[in-house]
């Protein structure tokens, strides 16, 4: 028995060496089993759509030797996904598609004991800007008119957004504090529901991502008033940015991929290369254009610095919200 197993080991070892020599990349790490592709949101949301798009590109082009298996863990505003990654039994085969709850959830739920800086940077696939939308029947066409209307409504102006203490409510709080507004905020489960209720005039305005409001915009139901991006969006060239009206503010939802804490350097390098390849595909570039994502490619070390910056920003934003 021992003889047999040692024989097997030797043969396999020899075969492995021979194979490595042939491929000429003895050190390159490859996944040895399906990759747990965790998504920080439920099925069907914006983050989920992006994750499934990425998966489909990888599949279509045969970029991975083992499949990416989407795994929705949206519970607790992403807390479930973060806990799953923190306790991953095989960090080399566990990666996560994130949005900004990557920053806000650990800050708001301190009991989780999650420090995102322990996670492994992989790729920043792009950032999703926010835009202020109103229904066309409101007759409002400029941001100034809108501010006037909200002030006139004296606390009865209704806006909807995704969740509480998350992206949408942070942007709305920013407007309240910087333009002296009092807005009634209704939390929803997802951006799709918000966009639908704006089109049905259940709410008066929203700060949907362009991808979420696009269909209704093209049908002429909703009107964009202002963009929370650094520069004007290519798809909405006439829409001013908040910076143009004199407030130094921009806000994006990050569409980034990260690895589990404790991921080996070799595995991290593999994923960094993989997602760089996906990022550069024609498909992803077209997707970014059609969904109005802004490119924000950065090297892994820059990503870690970016996280710190975002954490600081969000500490400040959340603190302002408490006021």
């Amino acid at each position: 028995m021992t003889m047999l197993s040692s024989f097997v080991t030797k043969t396999l070892g020899a075969a492995a060496v021979a194979f490595a020599a042939m491929s000429g990349s003895a050190s390159a790490w490859e996944p040895t089993k399906p990759i747990d592709f965790v998504i920080m949101a439920g099925a069907g949301g914006g983050a989920d759509q992006i994750a499934r798009f990425i998966q489909s590109v990888a599949e279509k082009k045969g970029l991975t030797s083992r499949p990416l298996v989407p795994n929705n863990k949206g519970g607790g505003s992403g807390a479930e996904a973060l806990i799953h990654l923190k306790g991953a039994s095989d960090p080399d085969h566990t990666i996560l598609v994130t949005l900004n709850s990557y920053f806000t959830t650990p800050l708001r739920q301190k009991g989780l004991g999650i420090d995102v800086k322990t996670f492994t940077p992989v790729a920043m696939m792009g950032v999703d800007p926010f835009v202020l939308w109103v229904h066309k029947d409101s007759g409002i066409t400029t941001f100034e008119d809108w501010v006037e209307k909200v002030k006139a409504d004296n606390g009865e102006y209704v806006m909807g957004g995704t969740g509480s203490g998350q992206e949408d409510s942070l942007v709305i709080t920013f407007m309240e504090q910087n333009f002296g507004l009092d807005i009634k905020y209704i939390p929803y489960k997802g951006g799709g529901a918000v966009a639908k209720d704006l089109a049905g005039q259940q709410i008066m305005a929203s700060v949907n991502n362009p991808a979420e409001a696009k269909g209704f915009y093209e049908a002429g139901d909703v009107v964009p008033l202002i963009a929370f991006s650094d520069e004007r969006l290519a798809a909405y060239p006439d829409v001013r940015t908040v910076k143009e009206i004199g407030k130094d503010f921009s806000y994006y939802n990050q569409r980034a991929v990260v690895g589990a804490p404790g991921q080996s350097a070799e595995a991290a390098e593999y994923y960094q290369k993989l997602f760089e390849t996906i990022y550069n595909t024609e498909e992803w570039q077209e997707y970014m254009t059609s969904e109005s994502l802004s490119p924000l490619w950065m090297a892994p070390e820059d990503q870690t610095a970016y996280w710190q910056l975002q954490i600081d920003n969000h500490v400040e934003l959340l603190a302002k919200m408490e006021e």
Binding site: G75, R108, Q109, S164, Q166
Partner: peptide, 9 residues
């Protein structure tokens, strides 16, 4: 689980 409205578990 999670309370969507308040954003708290």
């Amino acid at each position: 689980g999670f309370d969507e409205i308040s954003g708290e578990p």
